[in-house]
Write a protein that binds this DNA or RNA. Structure first.
Length: 653
RNA sequence: GCCGGAAUAGCUCAGCUGGCAGAGCACCUGUCUUGUAAACAGGGGGUCACGGGUUCGAAUCCCGUUUCCGGCUCCA
């Protein structure tokens, strides 16, 4: 009995009984038959969501199908990258007898495979050429990916015989986690050449579909991501349909390296790191300008929104950390020191400090909300292996604030925090993604409290008509939170802000306010950071702008260049006048060629270069070159200064 | 913290199998007086990360430590 399937354009196709995706492709045309890699099958009437299948899989009658080809984008790339992972495992298994294989999925930009190499043999990037050569042999051999369904015990016995312990463990786990009403009877294996792997699939028809591949790096990775389990050796690679796409990808990686904030930080003399204080940036004069401009923005914007700035110590009696719960939950990440037999701890968070100030007075409901902001310096002992330039540091200056408010005020305050955040991000052109994290399994407080807290956050998000992802169970132990993530100009994601409801600290520190009913009430704390930390945010800015900081943030906004030493006088005058106009201008009247001075200013990514020579001296003007190379001759200095002042004032460039 | 790799002048890097520590840029001095991304010449600059070991001899080989890089775990 023939079957009928529906194609994406709505037309239907009649196929013989037991027809496969490959049959469907052939029925549509020989070109598609050659190009097809897999098929996406759904069966809406049977309530089945779309799933990718091998071309050799039988199609169910009445299914909707879509053939996947190299042009199908991400799905297609994932397929051949998964293929490439199997080819990598094939090659490594041949070259390193006794290696144990574990898992090898496709990932965002490529794929990896985790191996357990026999005792005493490791692999480094030096081995890549040999492995790649062997992989190429598999690709050139056009091996078929053959799927077989085998009974669980048979598969288990197979991998046990081969001493593939990780595969045996995976099978055992699959059996254990199966629905008791539908016990697992078979598992699928994929074979290419003489290599067989436990794998759910799907795969493309054969290894020749991997047009271009490259191994990239080797790294350690815990088996199943569990630090108490064995560390495996992970080999990363990537694959594309064409060599050209692979080359473009490698080019993109090069460009990302060129905008690495650690490199730019050194080249632009913004900051440095020193062994004497690992994980703590030393801000150099140029970096300090950026820091101060950003801080000024933060201070000005906070003041406009009813925040009062405070400043609190960094060193506290350990008793405070016992009371706050940090001693219990966070001790390993804190720094302690004992002086005159009193143990003191460096603060890893500012909240207990702001609480002290809240408690300086008796508070009335009329005082609420109380909003304290602080560029709070905290220290966290981040594990040595996680430090990363400005993006992961031990010395952290948070753009912190704590809002003490009544429960009724929570939603409105959260709304204001979100609006504030969006206002700030818009200045830099950042697009953000929101995540709402709700009650975790380990938590304090009543269910009623959590209901109200989550409702307040949800209410704020909905009232602001903001799209968000839900992260059930990912909230802090003391309350739910909204996290704000940005995607930078090369597609990477960073967490910036966080807005957290906190019902724990007010309890632990017995915070109160007197209500209209003359009774004592418990305030709620909102813990919020919008930039995240100044260190991290500046790191992100550097990468976002590839070092070409906007005028208002640029450490040096312009350089006045004399054509020769003869024009040092008028050039110095111009620089002086711009400096008096509040602009950060330097003078370069050295006896060097104009070309050289231009080149040096360009390398420093200075926004404006003003050239003063014969003509300019005569006309009382300057020639303006912007860092993108555009030029204007005969510009009047007053006009330029006014224009730049305006750009700086509204931070428009 | 764990796995792997690296550390040579301020920066980027060369230095082969153990045999006198180098280049370019930067810096200093001099000449040139420059018109939109590198004028020319000369000069100074090193505990080869640190500590131990092997060796007649170590930047080079071995062990340990520190820091950094790429991941993993973590990021309250």
């Amino acid at each position: 009995m023939p079957i009928r399937v529906t194609l994406p354009d709505g037309s239907s196709l009649l196929l013989r009984e037991h027809a496969t995706g490959a049959d469907a492709a052939a029925a549509i045309g020989p070109g598609l038959a050659r190009a097809a890699l897999a098929v996406r099958v759904s069966h809406p009437e049977a309530g089945e969501a779309p799933v990718l299948r091998d071309l050799t899989a039988e199609l169910p009658d009445g299914a909707r199908i879509e053939l996947i080809t190299a042009k199908s984008g991400r799905d297609a790339l994932q397929l051949i990258r998964h293929d490439a992972a199997h080819v990598l495992a094939s090659a490594v298994s041949e070259l390193y007898p006794g290696v144990k294989i574990s898992i090898g999925p496709p990932i965002e930009d490529g794929f990896y495979y985790d191996f357990d190499f026999p005792e005493g043999s490791t692999v480094s990037e030096d081995a890549f050429p040999a492995i790649e050569e062997r992989m190429r042999a598999h690709v050139e051999a056009s091996e078929r990916f053959v799927r077989t369904e085998v009974p669980v015990q048979e598969a288990r016995a197979h991998f046990l015989r081969q001493q593939q312990d990780y595969k045996v463990e995976l099978i055992d786990d699959l059996v254990r986690s199966a629905d008791p009403d539908a016990p697992l009877r078979t598992v699928s294996l994929y074979r290419n050449g003489s290599f067989t792997d436990l794998c759910r699939g799907p795969h493309s028809p054969g290894t020749e579909r991997i047009g271009a591949f490259k191994l990239q790096s080797v790294a350690g990775a815990y088996w199943r991501g569990d630090p108490s389990r064995k560390m495996l050796t992970r080999i990363y690679g990537t694959a594309f349909f064409t060599h050209r796409e692979l080359a473009e990808h490698i080019e993109r990686l090069e460009q990302a390296r060129a905008r690495d904030h650690r490199r730019l930080g050194r080249e632009l003399k913004l900051f440095s790191f020193h062994d004497v204080s690992p994980g703590s940036p030393f801000w150099r004069p140029a970096g300090m300008v950026v820091w101060n401009e950003l801080t000024a923005l933060w201070r000005e914007q906070n003041a406009q929104r009813g925040y009062e700035e405070v400043k609190t110590p960094i060193l506290y009696d350990v008793e405070l950390w016992r009371q706050s719960g940090h001693w219990e939950k966070y001790r390993e990440h804190m720094y302690f020191s004992e002086v005159e037999s009193r143990v003191m701890g460096l603060k890893p968070m500012n909240c207990p400090a702001h609480i002290q100030i809240y408690k300086d007075e008796r508070r009335s409901y009329r005082d609420l909300p109380v909003r304290y902001s602080e560029a709070g310096l905290v220290h966290r002992h981040e594990a040595s292996g996680v430090l990363h330039g400005l993006l992961r540091v031990r010395h952290i200056t948070q753009d912190d604030a704590h809002i003490f408010c009544s429960e009724e005020q929570v939603e409105e305050e959260v709304k204001q925090c979100l609006r504030f955040a969006f206002h700030l991000y818009a200045i830099f052109g950042f697009e953000v993604r929101l995540e709402l994290s709700t009650r975790p399994p380990q938590r304090i407080g009543s269910e009623l409290m959590w209901d109200r807290a989550e409702a307040a956050l949800t209410g704020a998000l909905e009232a602001e008509r903001l799209a968000y992802e839900l992260n059930p169970g990912d909230g802090a132990f003391y309350g739910p939170k909204i996290d704000l993530h940005m995607t930078d100009s090369i597609g990477r994601s960073w967490q910036l802000g966080t807005v957290q409801l906190d019902y724990s600290m007010p309890e632990r520190f017995d915070l109160t306010y007197t209500g209209a009913d003359n009774a004592e009430h418990r305030p709620v704390m909102i813990h919020r950071a919008l930039l995240g930390s100044f260190e991290r945010f500046i790191g992100i800015l550097i990468e976002h702008y590839a070092g070409r900081l906007p005028l208002w943030l640029a450490p040096v906004q312009g350089v006045v260049l004399s054509v020769s030493e003869r024009f040092a006088g008028p050039a110095a005058d111009a620089a002086d006048r711009l400096r008096r106009a509040g602009l950060r201008f330097e003078l370069d009247a050295r006896g060097e060629s104009v070309s050289r001075k231009i080149r040096e200013a360009e390398l420093r990514k200075v926004p404006y270069m003003l050239i003063v020579g014969e003509r300019e001296q005569r006309d009382g003007t300057v020639a303006v070159r912007e860092r993108d190379g555009t030029q204007r001759a005969g510009v009047r200095l007053e006009q330029l200064a006014a224009d730049l002042q305006r750009q700086v004032a509204d931070r428009s460039s």
